[in-house]
């Protein structure tokens, strides 16, 4: 069990957990700023981004596609802001306009270009393939101490860990201005906090998290993790720090439990094959939210 677990299950669980964490943390602030759906928009425009990245370089290598996706996310966020401001359109509709258009363009580009022989398709973009991120060189727990084997860990794991660190550093360092400008943007401005810039930075960090997580686990987990764990935590507490901490816990629980249920659940039920881990993680996060919405101590707001 040990060897197989370390080689086949540990890396996906770790990657899933890190991805969940990287999205849930900024998700708290997006939720409080009523920008929860930015995660949704970003994850949709990742597809055109990677397609353009692929078309420009002609190879399915990771970095150009990641860069393309990140660029697409920023273009989308910029376009949403622009359309909202200059067209005087409400934020939800502005988002809908941008992400559907870019997604449609991405699908069209994908169909038009000859990608049938490479591993690039819409399904992969949507569900990712968490289960395939295995660590072949691992022979057991001792491999974690073996530099030779460690060198062959899935690159997604290292990338995701790095992004997770960036996200945590961003939120840790800018905690106070983030909290102030999220609570009272006008006041933040009078303090000299560049609130607009900070908002843009938050969205950029979210985009980085979304792109990295998408690469590892597909866009469903991304949307679910941006929203569900913070929303669940929101129903449990009235303190920001506690909310953020709880959201991290819920994200990790969703990732681990979701992966285990997807991988082993069908086997326990007597079926041979596993089901989608990404989908199951999203489902578990939804169940947690449902539980909090039913019995969470702070489920009612001041207005509701």
């Amino acid at each position: 069990m040990g060897a197989e677990f370390v080689a086949l299950s540990l890396p996906p669980i770790l990657i899933g957990s890190l991805a969940a964490l990287a999205c849930a943390l900024p998700g708290n602030f997006l939720l409080l700023r009523r920008q929860a759906l930015i995660g949704d928009a970003i994850s949709h425009v990742v597809l055109p981004g990677i397609v353009v990245g692929f078309l420009l370089t002609g190879t399915v290598s990771t970095w150009p596609m990641l860069l393309g996706a990140a660029a697409a996310a920023l273009v989308a966020v910029g376009a949403i802001q622009l359309i909202q401001r200059i067209g005087r359109i409400e934020p939800g509709a502005a988002m809908g306009v941008v992400f559907t258009t870019l997604f449609a363009a991405g699908v069209l580009l994908l169909e038009q270009s000859d990608t049938s022989n490479v591993h690039l398709d819409v399904q992969h973009a949507l569900y990712g393939n968490l289960e395939s991120l295995i660590w072949i060189d691992a022979t057991g727990w001792q491999s974690l101490l073996d530099p030779e084997a460690l060198a062959w860990m899935p690159p997604e794991l290292i990338r995701m860990a790095l992004v997770c660190l960036i996200v945590m550093a961003f939120i840790g360092l800018l905690w106070r201005p983030l909290a102030i400008s999220t609570f009272d943007e006008g006041f933040a401005r009078t303090l000299g906090i560049p609130a607009t810039l900070l908002g843009l930075a938050l969205v950029t960090v979210s985009a980085i998290a979304a792109v990295a997580a998408f690469d590892a686990v597909g866009s469903i987990i991304v949307i679910a993790m941006f929203i569900c764990p913070p929303a669940t935590a929101r129903l449990m507490t009235d303190r920001l720090a506690v909310q953020v901490a709880l959201s991290a816990v819920f994200a990790l629980v969703s990732a681990v439990v979701g992966y285990v249920l997807a991988g082993y659940g069908p086997i326990w039920l007597g079926y041979a094959d596993a089901v989608s881990a990404a989908g199951m993680i999203a489902t578990v996060s939804g169940l947690l939210l449902a539980a909090a919405a039913l019995v969470g101590p702070r489920r009612r707001g001041q207005s509701a």
Binding site: L31, R34, Q35, A36, L37, G39, D40, G92, I220, I221, I223, A224, F226, I227, C228, A231, R234, L235, S276, A278, G279, M280, I281, A282, T283, S285, G286, L289, A293, G296, R298, R299, R300, G301, Q302, S303, A304
Partner: peptide
Amino acid sequence: TRLGEDAAIGAVLSVFFG
């Protein structure tokens, strides 16, 4: 609940889709 409509939409679309 105290969640806004945007959060509710995002939660439903991602969880149902998942």
